[in-house]
Nucleic acid binder design. Structure first.
Lengths: 239, 239
DNA sequence: ACCTCACTACGTACGGTGTACGTAACTAGG
DNA sequence: CCTAGTTACGTACACCGTACGTAGTGAGGT
């Protein structure tokens, strides 16, 4: 009982303000905002403890008073932008519509902050806003006669599907955007190589796929269709 | 015409063996194997140019003769393990069964090499084995009356869904495995905090979800069911 | 046969990273 | 008021990706 496990603390478990010493100069929100600002502007790889500290105007190591490890900084960031979820007090009663609305919010959030999919990947966090989200999503499914495990499965499936789709959307969007020279050449090299491979005739179907005039792609439509399919199939298996 | 764009080359475009100088000491397969060995044993974050070079028994900078950038090393790794795909000469004619079999291969591959989901995330590579995979997957769908764009959508959806699920499986598996002390305490702290939050009564449904005796979870069943749903919905919308 | 030059090999060095540790200043509870 | 816990932060270490320069090697063209 001498020392609580000091090393592997969960950041949400420690209070923002400790009682004793001088009052902290920054709040968690301040720190998360600074990191989010950097990530939005320069990408998630540009987020380093030094840069965040500089953005805040404090010494690098001062950050470690607030954020024990960099991984925790990521959790702070995701939780911070997740505060933007607008969750009604009570679901509408139409669980499908509610889940679709929720998925649209997630998608919009990821488009506003394109680094979110990368950070979401590993494990569910249990940040305040993550708990808020999960509880609300479960409440949307109150009318459903299913075990909680199945409901969690559905929520995970929808979230995973959204993450997958938005990741692809972001990747293709970055492809067509004006890129810093080097990346543009990089892309040219990639497609050039791809064409050369297709030219060999070893991949006739891929050749046809690339030759196909697909017209303007309706990303929103693709997304909604896929989401509908997932919900369809769940509804059918649940009934 | 003086200098081809030297910087942003695609690794698959340059021949393994250049005609002129002394013959290379290693093949791409050697290098990829070394990196895969490290990633399997110590995780993907332990894969560094120095470590791979040491594993091969050569100087760090010698690696750069074979691998222009670290990102290319990752491509080599994914392609190398993707060689394990056993793709029949001709699909069976039952596209659903073929796609299910393919998904099972992907899942098994990712369980053998748990770092693959992390590396797959960003964009489709066009490595030899990726092309082989895509061409075969398209050939499975030859009988379907759909545009190539839609077929690619389906393939992407299945792959994304597999990646999402296996990522979760791996995460939960690592949770229950015997962990290096620190990580075990880390987990204890996480669940401890989660319980304390649930105890507050602010999240009644999550509390119920955790209280629910879900019995032994059949991961294979969950996976197959989810996969079936995705294919179901596509079949219906295609018919 | 030889010359030449692309290619291989690799040591050194630079700028970046996360973060352990030690020290000094500060402030709220006893 | 005193003291103990907090905050602030400079220094330092180990590690990373990789630019650059140099030396050696061996196949191609002549």
């Amino acid at each position: 009982m001498v020392g609580r496990p000091a090393v592997p603390e969960v950041i949400w478990a420690r209070p923002e303000r400790a009682g004793r010493g001088p009052k902290p100069a920054f709040s968690r929100a301040d720190i998360a905002d600074a990191a989010v600002r950097i990530a939005d502007a320069e990408g998630i790889d540009a987020v380093s403890m030094r840069k965040v500290a500089a953005e805040l105007g404090c010494g690098t190591m001062s950050l470690y008073n607030y954020v024990p490890r960099k991984e925790d900084l990521y959790e702070l960031m995701v939780d911070r932008v997740s505060a933007a979820y607008e969750l009604p007090e009570h679901p509408s009663g139409d669980w499908r519509a509610d889940l679709v609305a929720l998925a649209h919010q997630t998608r919009a959030l990821m488009h506003r902050h394109t680094w979110v999919p990368r950070l979401m990947s590993p494990v569910y966090g249990f940040s305040p806003n993550a708990l808020r989200f999960l509880e609300y999503a479960l409440s949307c499914l109150d009318g459903l006669d299913a075990r909680f495990g199945e409901k969690m499965e559905l929520i995970a499936m929808v979230n995973g599907m959204v993450t997958t789709y938005v990741s692809n959307e972001i990747a293709t969007a970055e492809r067509s955007r004006s890129l810093p020279w080097s990346e543009e050449q990089e892309q040219a090299a990639r497609t050039g190589y791809l064409i050369s491979q297709i030219m060999t005739g070893k991949y006739p179907r891929m050749a046809a796929a690339f030759a196909e005039d697909s017209g303007p792609i309706d990303l929103d439509g693709v997304f909604d269709r896929a989401l509908d399919r997932v919900l369809d199939s769940f509804e059918r298996s649940a009934s």
